[in-house]
Design a protein around this nucleic acid. Sequence first.
DNA 1: CTGAAAGCGCTTACAG
DNA 2: CTGAAAGCGCTTACAG
Lengths: 340, 340
Amino acid sequence: MSTTGRRRPPTIHDVAREAGVSRGTVSRVLNGGHHVSPASADAVNAAIRKTGYVVNRHARSLITGRSDSVAFLLTEPQERFFEDPNFNVLLRGCTQALAAHDIPLLLVIAGTEAERRRISRYITAGHVDGVLLVSSHSGNPMAERLVKARIPVVACGKPLGQGARIAYVAADDRDGAREMVRHLAASGRRRIATVTGPPDTPGGVERLAGYRETLAEAGLPADERLVAEGDYSRAGGERAMAELLERAPDVDAVFVASDLMAQGALTALERAGRRVPEDVAVGGFDDSPAALGTRPPLTTIRQPWDRISTEMVRVLLGRIAGEDPSAVILPTELVRRDSA
Amino acid sequence: MSTTGRRRPPTIHDVAREAGVSRGTVSRVLNGGHHVSPASADAVNAAIRKTGYVVNRHARSLITGRSDSVAFLLTEPQERFFEDPNFNVLLRGCTQALAAHDIPLLLVIAGTEAERRRISRYITAGHVDGVLLVSSHSGNPMAERLVKARIPVVACGKPLGQGARIAYVAADDRDGAREMVRHLAASGRRRIATVTGPPDTPGGVERLAGYRETLAEAGLPADERLVAEGDYSRAGGERAMAELLERAPDVDAVFVASDLMAQGALTALERAGRRVPEDVAVGGFDDSPAALGTRPPLTTIRQPWDRISTEMVRVLLGRIAGEDPSAVILPTELVRRDSA
DNA sequence: CTGAAAGCGCTTACAG
DNA sequence: CTGAAAGCGCTTACAG
C-alpha cells in the first residue's frame, strides 16, 4: 500500500540485517574496513548495493564532531570578487581540489559587518571543518575571530596583520612585479609608471616594492608623479591612469598591479588618444581572463592559480588534521602578449 | 587545569541547567517559543547569551530530517560557467537571497558524468533541502534523477525536456530577441544576421524564434546564410561571426544571442576591418558585465538577474515547504549603448 | 505551560 | 574479528 509513499531511506540497520551482521560491523566497513573479515566485508558491500544505502552525514557528524565540508569565505563586498575574474579561477580551483577529496565547498560571502557576525556564529557552530579565507585586505576581523575560535584557516595572500599564526598561500608578488618592470625597461621605456593596489593589501605593498627596486636597479629615477593608487577595480584603474596621464604626460609605460585595473587603464589611454604599445606600453598582473578580453591582449604576470588553489586546499586539510600553519609562496611567470 | 584546553561548546543541557528549566523548554524557545511562559523564555534567552550557546545543527538535522541548506548546482563543464559572467551574477543573487533567510548556499559543480553520479548520491543523502539547478542544456540527466528522488528543484531557464514537473524561472527570451531585432531594423539595417545559442537550449531556440518572427514582421526576407550557430562562448561567437562574414559579406547588423559571444563577434568584425556600429550594428543579449568590457560598449537585452535569482530562491523555498512546481517568466529590457 | 522520555542514525570503546 | 551497548545533542509527542 505504501510503496507509492516516500520510502524512508535505508539505514545502517537495514544493511546490517540484509548482510546478517551487526550494525557495528557495517560501520567498520564504512569507515575503512579495518578489523573486518573479508567475508563480512563482502556481505556488507553487497547489502549496501542492494539497499542503496547512503550514510546519513548528520548522524555521523553528530558523533564525530566533524562536518566533512569546508567553507570558501569571502570577506569583502561581493562586487569586488564577482567583478574580478581572479575570484572565479580561485573558486573553481578550490572546488576541484576539494572534490578530489570528496569534500563539498560551502560558498560564504560576508561583505558587511552584520553578515560577518552571522557567519562567524555559523562557522563557529561547527558547520565546517575549516575555512579558505579570501580577502585582499588586511586587518580583517574575521581572520582574528576564526583563529581565536580555533578554526583551521588558510588565507589566499599573506595576511598583513595576523603575524605567523595563520597559514597562507600566495604568489611571489614582489618578484613578479620585478620581472614585469624589467621587461618594460628592457624594451627601452624610460618613464615607467605604476598603478598600485590598495596599500593595505599584500599585492598593493609588494608589487609596488618590486617596481621601485627594479627602477632603481635600472638606473631610472624614482618619480612619485609616476605612482598612482588603484583599488583593484576596473574603474579604479581607469581613474588612476587618467591621473597619471595628467601628472606625467610623457609616461611611456605603465605597470598596472592587476589585469582588471589594466583593462581600465587601457580605456583611459584610448580616450587620451595614446596608442598601446606604441606610445605607452602596458603590463598587467594576474593573467586572469580579463587579460584576454582587452585590445590589445595584455602582457602580464601569471599567478599560478591552479597551484594556489591546490595548495590552499592541501594546507587546509593538513591544518584540519592537526598540522601547524605553514606559508607557501609560489613563483610567477611573465606572459608576453601585445600590450608591452 | 583544563581552561587552556579546547572547551567543549555548550549544549542545550548547559543552557537548561543555567536557566533552571528542562531541555524540552529550551528547545521550545529555540523553535519559536510557543507554549513557553514569558518568564521561562526570558530565563532561557539569558542563559543562551551567558553560555554562548549555538545549536548543533547536526543533532537538529538528524531529528528533523532537514539540513537547512540549499545547493547551487552547475551541471556543465565549469569553464562555461566561469567564463560567462552571467553565472557570477546569478550566483551572487542567489547567495544574497538565501542569506536573507539565513540559509547557506552549497556550491556544487558536476561537470562530468562521474561527478554527477557522486553529487547525486550526495544530494540524495539529504545533505541539502533543495537544489537551484543551473544548466543551459536540456535533457540533463541530473534534473531527472533529482526529480525522481523527490528533491525540490528549481531550474534557471525552462528545461526543454522535463515537461511540467520541474519548477523554473526564466527571462522572456523570445520577447527580448524581438525587441532587439526591431531595434536593429528600426535603425535602417536590412541584412540582419544572428548568432544563435545551441539548439538544445531554451535561449538557443527562443531567441532564434524571436529573430525570425521579427524579420518576417519587418518584411525582411529570411536568409539562412544569415544564421550561424554559436555555443555561448566567446570563441564560439568569434567563429560564428567569421562564418557569417564569409557567407554574407553584405551583412549590416547582427543579433548575437549572448554578450559573451557578442564580445567574440566584435573581435571577428574588427579583424575583418568592419566598423561597429557604422558598418555592422551589433546587438547582444544578457546585459552581463561582458557588455561593458567591449569597445564599443554593447547594446543589449537585459536579463533581470536580480529578480531571476530572487524568484528562484522564493520558488525553491516554496517547493521545500510543499508547494507545487511553478514557472516564472520575467520581462527583459533593451539597453542602448554604442554598438547598435 | 512544562518535564521525563523516547528516539533520530550513527560511531566507538569494551568485552569477548 | 564481532556484537551489545552507550552516547553524540537535539526535538517532539505524551502526560500532566
